[in-house]
Computed example of a mutant assay.
Amino acid sequence: MSSEQVSPPQESKETELRRQLGEQIRALQSATEAVDAATADRLGINRTDLHCLDVLTQRESATPSQLGTALGLTTGSVTAMLDRLARLGYLTREPDPNDRRKSVVRATAAIRRGADDLYGPLAEEGAALLERYSLPELELLLDFARRSREIQERQVRRLRDAE
Rank of each mutant, 00 (worst) to 15 (best):
L135R: 15
L130D: 08
D54L: 11
R47D: 10
R113I: 10
D117L: 14
R84H: 06
Q5V: 11
H51Y: 13
R101N: 07
A127D: 14
T69M: 13
L43Q: 02
G72S: 03
E131S: 13
R101I: 02
R158Y: 13
E23T: 06
V6D: 12
R100P: 08
E4Y: 06
S134F: 13
R93C: 05
A38P: 04
T39M: 02
T39G: 04
D54W: 13
A127T: 13
S61H: 01
L91H: 03
E153L: 15
L82V: 01
E163V: 12
I111Y: 00
R149D: 10
I151C: 13
S134V: 06
T15P: 07
G22I: 04
L50D: 00
T69H: 12
A38K: 12
E94D: 06
I45M: 05
L50T: 03
D117I: 10
Q24H: 07
S148N: 09
T63N: 00
V6Q: 09
I111A: 01
L91R: 00
R158S: 11
L85Q: 01
E23M: 11
P136M: 05
S77V: 10
L53E: 02
S61I: 11
L141N: 09
T57L: 12
Q152R: 13
R112Q: 00
E153N: 10
A34Q: 13
G68D: 01
I45A: 00
A127C: 09
P9F: 09
G68K: 00
Q58T: 10
T57W: 07
A27Y: 02
Q58G: 14
Q155C: 12
S12R: 01
K102P: 01
D117Q: 14
T108L: 02
R19W: 00
S7Y: 11
R132M: 12
R87E: 12
P95E: 13
L56P: 01
T92P: 02
G72R: 04
G72H: 02
P8R: 06
L142R: 15
Q58R: 15
G68N: 00
A34S: 04
T48F: 13
D161W: 03
E14W: 05
S61F: 06
E131K: 15
L88G: 04
